[in-house]
Nucleic acid binder design. Sequence first.
DNA 1: TAATCATTTGTCATGTATGTCAGTTTAGAC
DNA 2: GTCTAAACTGACATACATGACAAATGATTA
Lengths: 185, 185
Amino acid sequence: MNKTLTTGDIAKYCQVNFRTVIRWIDRGLLKAHKLPGRGDNRVKPEDFLAFLRTNNMPVPDELAMMSKRVLIVEDDPVVAKLIEKTLQKADYDTRIASSGFHAGIEVNEFSPSLVTLDLNIPGMGGLQVLKYMRTNPVLSHIKVLVVSGLPQEDLDKALEYGADDVMSKPVKPAALLEKISELLG
Amino acid sequence: MNKTLTTGDIAKYCQVNFRTVIRWIDRGLLKAHKLPGRGDNRVKPEDFLAFLRTNNMPVPDELAMMSKRVLIVEDDPVVAKLIEKTLQKADYDTRIASSGFHAGIEVNEFSPSLVTLDLNIPGMGGLQVLKYMRTNPVLSHIKVLVVSGLPQEDLDKALEYGADDVMSKPVKPAALLEKISELLG
DNA sequence: TAATCATTTGTCATGTATGTCAGTTTAGAC
DNA sequence: GTCTAAACTGACATACATGACAAATGATTA
């Protein structure tokens, strides 16, 4: 499913009238762009997925693969690889970002449904990333699991900033998987 | 990508039927010229970009380099606004990013052809942004103009890292515009 | 519980853009 | 020069947008 979606497609997925879909778009609830001729709306799959998630709507099977994407934001390549292996064994689609900037790129390009976030990425940017994700409506539906070696008070701060959950390093694979499936389920 | 585009190319980019593209051309919505034989349409990349922009349609990555968009990566809102005003007067399309993560998002979403980069941004050193942009083939075509108040040795370092040019703060609007048009021209 | 109001969604009819198919032609590659 | 993939056209079917109005939903109050 890499095709852009029409209002009709989305109407079928959501089992509503396509008129309603158009209204969602008009109201800015669902991101779309228009074709020049009649003004047909086209929706990118990732935007549709974001819409479904923000509204707690069921994700159709064709898009389910996209909802098992996890972005690993982690400075240390060893830890990153460890997390990646763990997740891939559990059939997750993963990508690694090693800096705040890289994370920004991947969040957009990869459209993960969950991000594991190290607070220690270069420039003390972990909290910045979290803060931005929580204030940007386009990204606010993405679950954030903070994974950090910092003391408890920093983890608490992360929770204040809007992290969905926190884990302290070193992480145990089983516990990590459990937490992630809990957050995504 | 300096090649003229066929209707098929554009159909793929816009994810519509090529028949529709031909109709856009016939209706004068999209500028094109015809080949003598069968009347094949050829579209110049800049005309296609203009078409996409006037219709608020997403710009494919491959064409991002042709646009007149500038992303201002700058921590200080006063400086950012100053740069933005200067560029907008010169008819550039601009956006501001205030952190490394934010910059990553905007680089993807906005598809700028040039980035003005402050080295002092939070969340990630400007140099790391630069480094990443220069090692990622998808982003390497984007021009980077470093604008910083740091001493000359840091600017030299930025050039080593692959900045297309550097300017020290405070920047004079005229000089900034000249440099940017030089880089994009 | 029932009545009210505000908001959202569904329905219908109409005009129009887009998709599809078949058949033809040519541009580009070898 | 030959061949194939891709572009053009025309006709037709499909699907989308719009506006107006009806129906459903949900919250509030009596």
